[in-house]
Design a protein around this nucleic acid. Sequence first.
RNA 1: GCGCCCGUAGCUCAAUCGGAUAGAGCAUCGGCCUUCUAAGCCGACGGUUGCUGGUUCGAUUCCAGUCGGGCGCGCCA
Length: 560
Amino acid sequence: MKDLLHELFSRALEQLRRDGILDAPPPAFVIERTRSREHGDFACNAAMLLVKAVGKKPRDIAMAIVGVLPASPWVSKVEIAGPGFINVFLSDTAWHEEIRRVLHEGAHYGHSNSGDGRAIGIEFVSANPTGPLHVGHARNAAIGDTLARLYSATGWKVYREYYYNDAGAQIANLALSVQARIRGIDPEDPRWPAAGYRGEYIRDVARDYLAGASVEVDKGRVTSAADPDDLDAIREFSVAWLRREQDADLRAFGVGFDVYFLESSLYVDGKVLQVVERIAAEGHSYEAAGALWLRSTGFGDDKDRVMRKSDGTYTYFVPDVAYHLSKWERGYKHAATVLGADHHGSLTRVRAGLQALAIGIPCNWPDYVLYQMVTVMRGGEEVKISKRAGSYVTLRDLIDMAGLDATRYFLIARKGDSQLVFDIDLARSQTNDNPVYYIQYAHARVCSVTRQMHERAIVFEQTHALKHLGRLDSEPARAVMFEVSRFPEIVENAAANQEPHLLAQYLRELAGAFHVWYNAEQFLVDDEDLRNARVALAYATRQVLANGLGLLGVSAPESM
RNA sequence: GCGCCCGUAGCUCAAUCGGAUAGAGCAUCGGCCUUCUAAGCCGACGGUUGCUGGUUCGAUUCCAGUCGGGCGCGCCA
């Protein structure tokens, strides 16, 4: 709808230029939805943008534009209003055509091809395999997965990636912690490792290791050596054990990945070394105080960063740069990384490292989708998250308590820039406080209508219905058509701006319009034309609800 | 001290690359089930968009300053 109007206005502006009335390049005007029905359905701001360039009053410019606006069967009325808005009122034909499109396109309604098949790598979660996933990871997973679904729906070829930091100091701590448990040492013991992980799960890992258990992860299998002194074996087993746990929780959350990328592989195949040598060859590094530094201040960082410590090991961001180099070489001209705000400092470093390689990577590559911290409330008190102390609410806890649908909806419904308060009591109270039920209920209500029709042997004739959509002339029905037609714009917008919360918000509004209409009018009336028209709109609504919920990874139940 | 994010109704949050009269839910109060599911609907109440300037046809949105909250500023990851 928007595209069509944009085209009409572009042609009008072009016409004015040919006529010599407008002596200015066409402005970057927008067609936007109006806030109030009094202002029509869409508004164009082109006239106001031209004021300076043309030197005329905005309303006069608007008049000129309207004068040459090509006629369209979709447009019933055009008005000039306010400071120079051109308000467009759509004809019934336009609305009816949109309903026809929904029913025709079905599960594809709202999808587009704006990505044009381009590849995008979306990295998310990427939690260290040192403990179960907590609410912060859950927010990451919900944002990343929804984003991936949105990109797919807008014509991108999406690759979901998970980067496992399975090398480095934290993993060494994990191995030491498990070894301590194997030896019967608990966190209260003075012999407990200083930076050890104190969670209960460490004991479970130790128990399975001692039992000689096997863990399957990816396509391989790791079998415990059961040797308390073999720290390498303990590490390998522990990492596999925790990866399996994380994978299982993510699967339960409806999240899967195309690529699991192991940090350790970057050392094995020499990528880390390659990065360091390349940066040195480009002259962006120097040695000082026994360490090798990246001159990241040359790339917008506020201080230079150590790449290779004086003990010969690399700092964490070097393999991270190597990993992103791998993404680049694998062809992701577009890449996005979903990252908690507590890690936003690393963003500058990774980009600086990529710039220092001097291989033509854009300075703002990759995209980072940042989200603020999650605080968890339970019983009116904040639950502190501490992986080391082992006290935190896990993703598994959330799913068990609130259910998959509510958890996903809660975590996606707010803008990433805002801190999120996850109220456990609210989420688990499966009542009307929970907006996800409100949306699902709208879907279930349409399904219920279908069941009624079946029971009463009423047949829906779609072809017939589409000829009588003119019967949908009440305000509540029009409001539903209006909301339904917004869906493609919402999907496009949510994907382009990387703001999946817009979709969650929208579905609440669509469901609201539907509930109002449902209460105002009976669908299954004797008048066949009217009945078919109403059922057609109800089906269109159900389709959009299902498509939207699907993009959120939330189920669309047929009954509740 | 420096960098990033946030500050909107009593509470939790929206507001379409700067648009018109700032919107929902919850809470509070008052109504609606003989009717396809009341997990619903209708109405009322509720605002100096933290504060002060600036930019312009127009600012919740952009800029500067200021106050308050969060996160980061390691040869940790």
